[in-house]
Design a protein around this nucleic acid. Sequence first.
DNA 1: TATTGTTATACTCTATAACTATA
DNA 2: TATAGTTATAGAGTATAACAATA
Lengths: 173, 173
Amino acid sequence: MPGSPPSLDRQQLGAYLALMEVSSILRHEVEQHLRAEGDLSYVQWQILASLEDSASGSHRMTDLADGVVYSRSGLTYQAGLLEKRGLISRSPSPADERSIDVTITDAGRALFARVLPGHIEVVSSLLFEPLSRNDVQALTGLLTPVRDHMRATPPRSASPRRRKRTRAGDTAS
Amino acid sequence: MPGSPPSLDRQQLGAYLALMEVSSILRHEVEQHLRAEGDLSYVQWQILASLEDSASGSHRMTDLADGVVYSRSGLTYQAGLLEKRGLISRSPSPADERSIDVTITDAGRALFARVLPGHIEVVSSLLFEPLSRNDVQALTGLLTPVRDHMRATPPRSASPRRRKRTRAGDTAS
DNA sequence: TATTGTTATACTCTATAACTATA
DNA sequence: TATAGTTATAGAGTATAACAATA
């Protein structure tokens, strides 16, 4: 029997490696398609999808940052590219002058609509072809708790600026 | 009601998004740890793991390329970094003078051993904590066929040089 | 003082094409 | 002619820290 302190059993190792390989290939193929079809990075696609999905077609930069990218400057960079192409627009939020409201434009919606079918096709043919409806349901059932756990796990990212809650007693003064 | 041709049902969309988020976070955290603990990129880690895992501690560059990286020059780059640090060594293969045998060094094994516990810890706490033994088995059962399917799917990568089999009748002459 | 967002900068990684050498 | 690997190069993405402005 192997050591107990730090180890993954055979099943866990298999699951981990399968997950990494599956997600790497899928991500790679998806990115390839997005680039070829719409000249979009995956982050740009997530931004458009997030905006398209929202009722107002708008989000604050901070809202986009949570759940899209790991650094704020990265989001600024990607949003800048989208704005340059006229796919989104940015304007100061009326409510809070510090915030920027990001809104998807008609051109953005049009591009999203144009790319979406191919995107779905890639995902369907690569990920879902070998899975039955029950399989998909089971997969969701397994991954959802994991996602929730990961979201809840505190140190998630190391430094996208102090994360919400203020740690008391940090600076004495 | 929207069109029917290309679409993912709610279950599929959920599974897809959960998979992407889970794998993104996991990969990000793993990379963070590898960098902090061993100054290694994920690809470098895969190379070391692959060599450590092999009986001889060696692999040809081509063998490493299949299943590790998407372009050959990328592998050369990463292997070059490892060699510079003395973690692997490269020498022409006796059997085929075109090939390079990559071998993990003692220093490479030592570093791998030093980083592994923390690596496992990250994976365990992030991915496996919310999963029972049965869950893990189920997850493997779902992802393995997907992985096999993806490996078999032809166009997988767009251009890491002509992939094995030669397409007849390409150049006339 | 904390939060929102941008900018400047440096660095890592990746991919393409051209190139060498062996089979 | 095909395969193994490297090199040069160019570009994309990311993160850090410093910065400005509003709350």
